[in-house]
């Protein structure tokens, strides 16, 4: 139980620099727990624990501060054959709500026990909470409607 909470905290902590959204903004989507469990469910406990260990380490020794943090995210996560695809998927999960299939090469090397790797929205709510809509000054198409005539002026935020 404790491990899960710590894992979730780590997951959210690394998601902040990965997405460019604050911890509060990420929590406000209401999706953090679901995404955390979804990734764990798909890539399995071992891979998830590895990933969280690396990210915790990055956050700790960079003191969660750019530019060191950015460099470490690039070098240790995005450039890594093991962690790169998972990292990119987590970014896209936050922005769009859907899981993308991990590439075949990744599956062949690291994918023992991977389950449910097909392209899918985590839930209807995941689609509705995608950060991409905020990023473009809009709202998810088909949800959180901003009201009559709102489209005729620039977004207020």
């Amino acid at each position: 139980m404790e491990k899960t909470t710590a894992g979730l905290d780590n997951f959210i902590a690394i998601s902040v620099p990965l997405t460019g959204y604050s911890r509060v903004a990420l929590l406000a989507t209401g999706m953090a727990t679901d995404y955390y469990h979804a990734v764990r469910r798909i890539i399995g406990d071992d891979r998830m624990d590895d990933f969280l260990a690396v990210t915790a380490d990055i956050l700790q020794h960079t003191h969660d501060k750019a530019p060191a943090l950015d460099r470490e995210i690039r070098q240790q996560l995005l450039a890594s054959l093991q962690y790169g695809p998972v990292t990119r998927n987590i970014i896209q999960l936050w922005y769009w709500g859907a899981w993308l299939p991990l590439p075949d090469a990744w599956i062949a090397k690291y994918g023992k026990g991977v389950k449910g790797n097909e392209n899918h929205f985590i839930s209807p709510a995941a689609y509705q909470q995608g950060l991409i809509w905020q990023a473009m000054g809009s709202h998810p198409e088909g949800s959180k409607q901003p009201g009559f005539g709102s489209w005729s002026i620039a977004p207020l935020s």
Binding site: P17, L18, T19, Y21, I73, L78, L131, I132, A135
Partner: peptide, 12 residues
């Protein structure tokens, strides 16, 4: 290869 604020700003 964008992430974080760069990604947010690029998409925006």
């Amino acid at each position: 290869n964008l992430f974080g604020n760069d990604l947010k700003n690029y998409l925006g």
